[in-house]
Write a protein that binds this DNA or RNA. Structure first.
Lengths: 337, 337
DNA sequence: CTCTTTCGTCGAAACGCGTCGCTGAGTAGA
DNA sequence: TCTACTCAGCGACGCGTTTCGACGAAAGAG
């Protein structure tokens, strides 16, 4: 491995000159700059990450803490992670993958060792034990998700309250009166992950304004459990004419079951999904849906964290506006027979 | 942040002594060791990662290169990544997340900068452009997947040839004569990812021994395309009595379609899936399946890479034996009407 | 009682880079 | 001609560890 000193010797300049060529923090004559750049290329020089981190106390690494639960829809997590990684590369940073396994201790470890310059934490719960650590830490951090008290933090998330409201508006506009929400797995609510509750709140309060009735049932996402939930819904509210689904795994089974039961979509039942566009498009019916902007969330998180690294102090909460795409699964409420 | 020197002063010893306490590379008296450990705890000392990397030329970081394609089943990728991360932590290492985006250049960059001590590469193609780089690199690496020529490399993968054979055996045993394989998306075969082809090879050659006929159709995984594939299969081979599915996304649609068409599983059609157990269990019929041992692959990859870091030279190819779990979706071939 | 080992500890030299202060040459203004 | 200033480049130091050789004391061998 070539070192700075070797590059300097090869180019006939001092080591500091090479360093300044690399960082651009002082002016360098065109001529020597070219000579140095040439030597760098010839020797295949790459700066040593450890030395650079030691000298500058900047590792150019961002830690990303992903949950290791299985009850969340994994592709969204992955899409966020990939967006974080590629965006970070655009800022000259790499991404360190931390799993929730280690728990809050990981926060301490990474911060104290200077392994990472900053941290992005996914899947934040309303009352998350990592939050106080992050708030007190000297290192910048950004949360994806919204904790109970975002004071002193920086958070990004989809505006799930608005998402719920948007679904309500769309269905109200078609004259629906009875709406059922097929929700996430029960564990998600028990854990108070926030986003699921916020969706419900937004939907319920807007539904009230529109004079719609709402019932909500968690759903584990398997075929069996989806069948059970649907059966209950139509037993308890036979006039249900619209379903809002916030559960990617349940989408496929639900559509299959509706077809089986002879309920046409959208003539008998309208369906709005809250899911990535890909899921909405791959389903057996093109679903009207509010997209989960996974890439956008990852990108934003990195931009916010970079801003903090550079000393700026962004707004504590960034909520991405939801967008509803109308497809083939929603239509006017059926008129009474 | 406390430093080694501060710990040393606090404990009344030299810095090198503290270092040896930490590493255990020289004997230290019980008494001073306790004193040092106490100071470490009191000062909340964590070694600086950059300095450690510089001095020891070991970063304790393993790079993990994940593909950024969308035509692979994402949860498997994620499960492998998480298994890699947690296993690596067990060895005192962290994981750096690289996306395929940067391409082969990422290999060079990470290796040359000493950012990572070693590398794990996922989703290897038969003729992968990263492979020559890895072979020539001084840093250890492990591939998950099998390239065309594994000489000079270390690879882990499920034994997909045996997987195909296992499916053939299981179906032959039930007297099936006409088997259709619902495969991955066409792009996967075009790209020569290897595993899909190997499954087919294994299945075909064993099927020949059993006197079974096999047809194979790629499938994009959406409801539409699954419907198309199924229709073609039963048109072209009306006597098809068994399906082997190697496509997680197609599982749900396929079962829904079979039900719609009045084909009972397993009385009319047997189904064997090659997929994670979770998918096999969440489907509307409990599927007889060969599991994709994602966790095991991640774990193995880390163990192999650690062996190489420590100077051992493991076998070039590690193939995990497939295991078929019999559930409710396979049974005797229907007798002629 | 001396000579060699072993044990526990120390000091100093890397490791490769970033950064500060300085210098000498050149330029411009007076 | 002298000062004031800018521009390019240099040398030296520091970042926090690891590691090697050395050293004194205690222990064992003859």
């Amino acid at each position: 491995m070539a070192t700075l000193a070797e590059v300097a010797r090869h180019a006939g300049v001092s080591a500091s000159t090479v360093s300044y060529v690399l960082s651009g923090k002082r002016s360098i004559s065109e001529e020597t700059r070219l000579r140095v750049e040439n030597s760098i290329r010839e020797l295949g020089y790459h700066p040593n990450a450890g030395a650079r981190a030691l000298a500058s106390s900047r590792s150019h690494i961002i830690a990303l803490m992903v949950p290791l639960r299985t009850d969340m829809y994994v592709p969204v997590m992955m899409e966020i992670a990939i967006a974080v990684a590629t965006t970070a590369r655009g800022f000259g940073h790499d991404v360190l993958l931390l799993t929730g396994e280690e728990g809050p201790e990981a926060v301490r470890r990474v911060a104290a060792s200077g392994l990472a310059d900053a941290m992005i934490v996914m899947d934040v719960e309303l009352d998350d034990e990592r939050v106080p650590l992050l708030r007190d830490s000297a290192r910048p951090s950004v949360l994806i998700g919204l904790p109970g008290d975002p004071a002193g933090l920086t958070c990004v998330d989809l505006d799930f309250t608005a998402t719920g409201a948007l679904c309500a508006d769309h269905l109200a506009q078609f004259g629906h009166k009875d709406v059922a929400v097929i929700g996430e797995a029960a564990a998600v609510y028990r854990r108070h992950t926030g986003f699921a509750e916020r969706t419900l709140d937004g939907l319920r309060s807007r539904a009230r304004e529109h004079g719609m009735r709402v019932i909500h049932r968690p759903c584990e996402g398997s075929y069996e459990s989806t069948a059970g939930v649907l059966a209950r819904v139509f037993e308890e509210r036979p006039d249900t004419s619209a379903l809002v689904v916030q559960n990617e795994a349940a989408v496929g089974p639900m559509l299959a079951l509706l077809r089986q039961q002879g309920r046409a979509v959208p003539e008998d039942v309208s369906v709005v999904a809250i899911c990535p566009d890909q899921v909405a498009l791959q389903a057996s019916v093109q679903l009207t849906s509010v997209a989960i902007p996974a890439q956008e969330m990852g990108r934003q998180a990195v931009e916010l964290v970079m801003a903090k690294i550079e000393g700026r102090e962004p707004a504590p909460v960034t909520l991405l506006p939801p967008r509803l795409t109308v497809r083939a699964s929603t239509g006017p409420a059926p008129t009474a027979p």
